[in-house]
């Protein structure tokens, strides 16, 4: 399906000349095609821009250096990268599901859902006070996890391995539970 991107000789010529309008046109086409491609992989709509951007980043960074005309068309090369990104995404989704952080998920749901509690207390205020005992780095990691960053993204950001991210998150949750159990005398209730 990506071969369409390379079949308009006029557009390619304009691209080669550095025509910005041509680039914008080409960008619009490739993003639409990537949208269609990832929809077939049943990617959630909110994740589509991330995945499309990942494919483009791979293309931009490789600058087609890895492209071998013997092995297929440039469209096939784009499809190959898109497929790799889709597979990585699927694996990452499975990993997140398998992450033994039930307490973490419960805690995330409990204190991070937007809105106001029955007693009228704003959840943002609760979150702020609940995370106060944590160190700055711990808080930063937890908040980014709440915002939906994956373990891979966290490991890149904090320059530690993925397994270190997982164990740190587990430790942070345990620490929070310990602190708040002591305060509330049993159940976790920040």
């Amino acid at each position: 399906m990506f071969d369409k991107l390379f079949k308009d000789p006029t557009l390619l010529l304009r691209l080669k000349r550095g025509d910005e309008g041509a680039y914008d046109e080409w960008f619009l086409q490739i993003t639409a095609l990537l949208h269609a491609y990832f929809r077939r992989w049943k990617v959630r709509p909110e994740q589509l821009p991330d995945l499309a951007a990942t494919v483009l980043a791979e293309l931009w960074e490789s600058r087609f250096k890895d492209y071998d005309p013997q092995r297929g068309s440039p469209g096939a090369f784009v499809a190959l990268i898109a497929k790799r990104v889709a597979l990585d995404h699927r694996r990452a989704e499975k990993k997140t599901e398998a992450l033994p952080l039930d307490d973490f998920n419960e805690l995330t749901y409990e204190i991070c859902m937007p809105g106001t509690d029955e007693d009228g207390e704003d959840r943002a205020t609760r979150l702020d006070s609940a995370l106060k005992p944590l160190q700055r780095r711990e808080r930063s990691m937890l908040l980014r996890k709440f915002e939906g960053e994956t373990t891979t993204q966290l490991s890149r950001r904090f320059r530690i391995s993925e397994s270190a991210v997982k164990s740190k998150l587990r430790r942070i949750v345990k620490k929070l539970q310990r602190i708040h159990q002591v305060k509330s005398g049993g159940n976790f209730d920040p």
């Binding site: 993003t31 949208h35 077939r40 589509l48 951007a53 990942t54």
Partner: peptide
Amino acid sequence: EYPENPEEFALQVRKKLAAL
């Protein structure tokens, strides 16, 4: 399967691409 608003989607991708 194309985005409902291709321009809007392209802008979202541009934003993510710049950050990435």
